[in-house]
Amino acid sequence: MGIIEWVTTIFLLAGAFFFFAGTLGLLRFPDVYNRLHALTKADNVGLGLITIGLMLQVDNWVLALKLLLIWFLVLLTSATAAHLIANAALRGGLPLWRRP
């Protein structure tokens, strides 16, 4: 493997770690609000790292821009979706988990 392949591998593995941690948070965190933190923030970083890793592998640099665009759109939708879910939960009167 060349140096680029190694760097790509490191970025992809780091990205996968953040997806793993985000999923762990989704399962372990006590209520919907905390779970939203885990999903939006960890997955955002995970996808960003995977995007960088894949950008190093493209042979047409327009494709690199397309990957960046995909990351940006996912960012926008996940932040919006997280707000909408938190907002619906709050308006629906779902109580917050607090440390006992």
Binding site: F17, F18, D31, K41, V45
Partner: peptide
């Protein structure tokens, strides 16, 4: 800051003691 946000929440999720003290 979003990188810091991801690292912060990832560390909380994998920490066995689950360090959360949420508030609104």
């Amino acid at each position: 800051e979003s990188l810091r946000g991801g690292i912060d929440v990832a560390l909380r999720a994998i920490n066995p003691r689950l360090p959360l003290n949420p508030d609104l």
